[in-house]
Simulated assay, not measured.
Amino acid sequence: MTGLADRLGPDKVKLGVCCTLWWNDDFPAIDAGVSFEQAVSEMALAGFQGCSIGHKYPADPAVLKAALDLRGLQVSEPWTSTYFTVSRMRQKTVAAFEETLAHIGALGGTELVVAEFGASSHLLPVDVFANRPVFTHAQWDALASGLNELGKIANSAGMKLSYHHHMGTGVMTRAEVDRLMASTDPALVHLLLDTAHIAFAGDDPLDLARAHADRIGHVHLKSIRPEVVSRVREEGLSFQEAVELGVFTVPGDGAIDFRPILEVLADADYRGWLVVEAEQDPNKALPLACAKKARAHLADVLGW
């Protein structure tokens, strides 16, 4: 068997990093005052090729693209929340998606990431497990139909749509990811494999990667601290409290072994972004140090 450097080399994958190492887009109070310019400079300094889009980024795509080009960075993904499972939100969801598509197109990006946030508990100050939504059959049908529609829109623009399973939402567990994959068109809806969100939910990221290797269109690589997961479950903590306690961390730290997961991706001839992510408090976890640790770990595992 050839090494990962051959099967997941820079000719096949690009390494990105999410701006959630520098600040939190869900909870803006989790912030150490790092500017957009400092964050993207540190991303490049740590050795990454691209980044996600965050709330501190310039809204004008020309200004943003110039800043990223200066640092040799591309946009790995934008984020759009969907609301297909709640009333009277389909049209607004599609309109927001089309707006994001136009924005990412102006930046030269080709990846679109979505997650269904209808009735999600992850933004609320409540037990993230006990209060997450459980979709009805009608809601599942509405979600699948809506995602297929977005996938058609993305494909027609030469872009790829990937669905992000997420803590506190109705697509959080392995069983729910399986159902979503079974109910959507493989040509239209791909899977964003988030190693930490599925582990936090109580399932195995390696098993999920194996089960849906042919559907994975985007990857978020982050790890978890099991002792924090246990505390969240036992004390009924919110998602924000979990983040602030350090439930997530970067590859090279925490409990997830990334080598076998990357082997699965290599075996499936995965091509696309591998994006480091860790929703951490930048006041406690120095962003540049974490980014460099993650990049060094990937260099060790991938061989480049």
Rank of each mutant, 00 (worst) to 15 (best):
L123A: 10
G170P: 11
G151V: 06
S121P: 00
L161M: 10
S145W: 05
Y163F: 15
W140Q: 06
H122M: 11
M172H: 12
H164Q: 06
T136R: 10
G146R: 00
L150A: 06
N155M: 07
A144V: 08
A138V: 11
F135M: 07
D141H: 10
H137R: 11
H137L: 14
A119P: 01
A130H: 01
A144G: 14
R132Y: 02
K160F: 04
M167I: 13
H137K: 13
P125R: 11
E116S: 09
V128P: 01
R174T: 03
A157L: 13
T169K: 01
P125E: 10
V171K: 04
F135I: 00
V114N: 02
R174A: 14
H122G: 00
Q139Y: 09
R132A: 14
S145M: 11
P133Q: 08
D141Y: 04
L150C: 10
N155W: 04
Y163C: 10
S162L: 02
M172C: 15
G146E: 03
V114L: 04
W140L: 06
A175P: 03
A142H: 03
G158D: 13
V113Y: 00
E149D: 12
V114G: 03
V128E: 01
S121D: 07
S156E: 12
A175R: 14
K152P: 00
A138Q: 13
L150Y: 02
A175S: 15
V134P: 00
V113A: 08
A157D: 04
V113F: 05
G158W: 02
G158V: 00
H165W: 01
L124C: 07
S145L: 14
M159K: 15
H166L: 03
P133I: 14
N148I: 09
Y163D: 02
T173V: 02
G158I: 00
G151Y: 01
A119L: 10
S120F: 05
I153E: 00
V171T: 02
R174C: 06
L150S: 07
K160T: 13
G170S: 12
H165I: 01
S145C: 14
G151A: 07
V128Y: 02
A144N: 06
L143F: 09
W140D: 11
P133W: 05
L161A: 07
V126I: 12
E116L: 03
L143E: 11
V113E: 00
G146A: 08
F129D: 12
A144P: 05
F117Y: 10
H137W: 10
V126E: 07
V134M: 08
L124E: 15
S162E: 00
T136C: 12
F129V: 05
S145R: 07
S162W: 00
L161S: 04
E116A: 08
V126D: 03
H164S: 02
V128I: 15
A119V: 07
T169W: 02
L123M: 13
M167Y: 04
G151I: 02
A175Y: 06
G146C: 08
V171H: 04
T173Y: 15
N148R: 03
D127M: 07
V126L: 13
A157Y: 09
T136E: 11
A175I: 09
P125Y: 09
H122L: 12
V126H: 03
N131M: 08
T136Q: 09
A138R: 11
P133E: 05
S121W: 04
P133L: 11
Y163L: 06
M159E: 07
A144T: 10
H137Q: 15
